[in-house]
Simulated scan of single mutants.
Amino acid sequence: MVLVHGGPNSNVSMNYYIGVIAYVALDFDMLIVNYRGSIGFGLALVDKLLGNVSKTDVQDCHEAIHRCLQHTEPSRSVILIVMDLLHTYITSDIPDWALAQSANVPFDFETGRNRFSDTSLITYLIERSSIRLMDQIKTPVLLQLGKKDKRVPFSVGLRYYECLKANKIPTKLYVYDSNHALSETSCANNDGNRILAKYYNQSFSTVKEQKDFEKSLFNKTHKGAGDVILLDNLTIVYRNNVDLLFYVLGSTNENELMLNSVLTCLFESLSTMLRKTVEKKVLCENLDLIMLAVDEICDEGIILESDPMLITQRVQLRLDDIPLGEQTVSQVFNQAKEQIKWSLLK
């Protein structure tokens, strides 16, 4: 089984992924590819993908599969998992990214969309689209689309499905009333009372609905150390630590590996910032850190970053920018201690 991350400027780290462990337990061999353009290996590798999307990334995955098969029993077949399907860039909510990755040209948000009237540019983009390979597809395909997805528009996936069906490729399509985002991130203590929660859609539009759901969630999970569960048509990954429970929720079509990477990023970021003391008392004294960390990881439910070290650095930068009059007593005290420490070391 080949796991190819989306992004494309993302990566699959060496964290503990429940989904991968489950597949291995079911006797699958797992091949996880961080192709050129993946983050975490230096800026030079990220830049390799500029103007070469659907070229170098596909070549790297193909080469990895080819080498792996040289050491694999002939009787074992390959299953390819693709997290994101983005084969046209015009209607995406990130057109600047689309042009940078596909054509390596800048994008101006005031006039940039006018460039899509350029037929030569459209031709260039189509040449880098997965739809150009439609006639080469032979294997069965399963598509899962969100109606409200702005990152990979629903209409694009639907058109891809229609082309597959027209070519008589065995294809199934599942459509969800969802988007490209997470549904919720939250943190509760071991009594089931919420410390902090951020809801990114209208699944639970009132406080009462949120409280009822959180109570049901706590009853399902408070005895476990951490796992992935399904509840109320949501995929939920959670982690129990001392007197706290951390949750990340997504729709049922969200990949639990991605949800778990967000959960791991949040916990490890807080662990670093709180000097490994991730407990209720300490957390309540540093709610500003939690809120900043969540905001750096997700924006309206869209995953921005899953590297805990980067999140820690960004939160610290934002804390440094807070005016003195808006800082808490503990923040002022900590800054004073740091200044005294460095003055003594000079």
Rank of each mutant, 00 (worst) to 15 (best):
L158W: 05
V152K: 01
S120R: 15
C61S: 11
P153I: 03
C68I: 10
T56Q: 01
K150N: 06
R67W: 07
G157D: 02
D60H: 05
V82Y: 01
I131F: 02
P74R: 01
I126V: 07
M83P: 01
P74I: 00
I81W: 07
I79T: 14
K55S: 12
K48G: 00
K138R: 15
S130H: 14
L43N: 13
T88E: 10
K147Y: 07
T88N: 07
G112L: 03
Q136N: 08
T91P: 00
L143T: 07
P106F: 07
D96M: 00
N52F: 08
S92A: 09
I65K: 03
G146Y: 04
I122T: 10
S129Y: 04
S117D: 15
T56F: 02
I81D: 06
I65W: 03
S129M: 05
E73N: 14
C68L: 14
S54L: 08
R151N: 12
G146Q: 04
K147T: 11
M83S: 09
T139K: 09
T72Q: 12
Q136D: 10
H62W: 08
V46N: 10
L69V: 04
E63W: 05
F41E: 13
H87S: 14
Q136W: 02
L133A: 09
Q101H: 09
K138L: 11
F109K: 11
L43Y: 08
G157E: 02
I126T: 08
E127N: 12
K48A: 03
S130F: 15
F107L: 01
L43C: 06
M134V: 05
I131Y: 01
S120H: 15
L49T: 02
A100G: 00
D96K: 06
L142F: 08
L86M: 10
S77P: 09
Q136A: 10
L43A: 15
T111N: 13
I137R: 01
S117V: 11
V58R: 08
Q136I: 01
G51C: 01
L99H: 01
L143P: 06
L142C: 08
P106M: 08
K147Q: 13
T56E: 00
R67N: 11
F109P: 12
V78H: 08
T123N: 15
R115S: 06
I126G: 05
L121F: 02
T91N: 08
C68N: 14
S92L: 04
R128H: 13
L43F: 09
C68T: 15
S120G: 07
K147D: 02
G112C: 03
E110F: 14
K138H: 13
I65A: 03
L50R: 05
S130E: 10
C61T: 14
S54H: 11
L133H: 13
